[in-house]
Computed example of a mutant assay.
Amino acid sequence: MADLDEPIHVVAPDQAWGDQGRTLVHDISAALRGLPVDVAHIGSTAVPGLEAKPVIDVQVGCPAGRIEVAVARIERLGFEWLGRPGVPGRQYLRRRSGLPANVHMVGRRGDCGPTTSSSGTI
């Protein structure tokens, strides 16, 4: 598993972030087709005109019983599963190749129970 700590650099607003967020939401939604999920572009890159780290954040709301399947599908998009670090009730995935992005997987009603990834079980 990769180290979670990485440098954060805040940059001037980029008008492309909105389109990049919409594209990523579309791609993740397509990968999760058939699952009862909600996918949204979140964080500072989702706010036009706001300085931000140049990493698109997406949140996925998913019933706890379907999280394992959802994580595996998101991994196929080039995301690395980093488990449940730091924030109770959240699974975290990130991608740093291509368009850098984070996926915050949360269970509906705050339940984001244990899961496995393609690389192992937590």
Rank of each mutant, 00 (worst) to 15 (best):
M1C: 00
V58I: 12
G98I: 14
G61W: 09
V60R: 01
H104V: 03
E75H: 03
A12V: 01
A31Y: 05
E75N: 07
G34Q: 06
A72V: 01
I28V: 11
S29A: 02
H41R: 05
S29F: 04
V10G: 04
A52K: 00
G65A: 11
V10S: 02
A40F: 14
L77Q: 05
L32N: 07
V55T: 13
G120N: 09
G113H: 01
E75I: 04
W17R: 05
P48E: 09
C112P: 08
T23R: 13
G43E: 10
P114E: 12
D14P: 00
A2H: 05
G120E: 08
A52V: 01
D3T: 06
P48A: 08
R94A: 07
P63Y: 06
P48L: 09
G110E: 10
W17C: 00
L32T: 05
D14Y: 04
G34R: 07
R33W: 12
V103K: 10
P36Y: 12
V11R: 00
V37R: 06
G89C: 03
C62P: 11
Q15L: 10
D111A: 15
I42Q: 10
E75S: 02
P36K: 14
I122D: 15
A70R: 01
V69E: 15
V103Q: 11
Q20G: 03
A72C: 02
D38K: 15
Q15R: 13
A40E: 15
P63A: 10
S44L: 07
G98Y: 12
Y92R: 12
I42A: 05
G18L: 04
I42E: 11
W17M: 07
R95N: 05
P7R: 08
P48H: 11
A2S: 10
G34E: 04
I74E: 14
V10N: 02
S117V: 15
V69K: 14
D57G: 03
E51K: 13
I8D: 09
I28A: 07
L35I: 07
A46Y: 06
G61Y: 09
P54K: 00
E6S: 12
R95Q: 02
L24W: 07
H104I: 03
R90E: 03
Y92C: 04
W17F: 14
E68G: 14
L32S: 02
Q59G: 13
A12W: 00
V47W: 02
R73A: 10
R90A: 05
H9Q: 15
R73L: 13
V69L: 15
V25G: 02
P36M: 13
P7E: 07
D27V: 00
P54Y: 01
L77I: 06
A101N: 05
D19W: 04
M1P: 02
G83K: 15
Q91E: 11
D111W: 14
A72L: 08
R22Q: 10
V37K: 01
R109K: 15
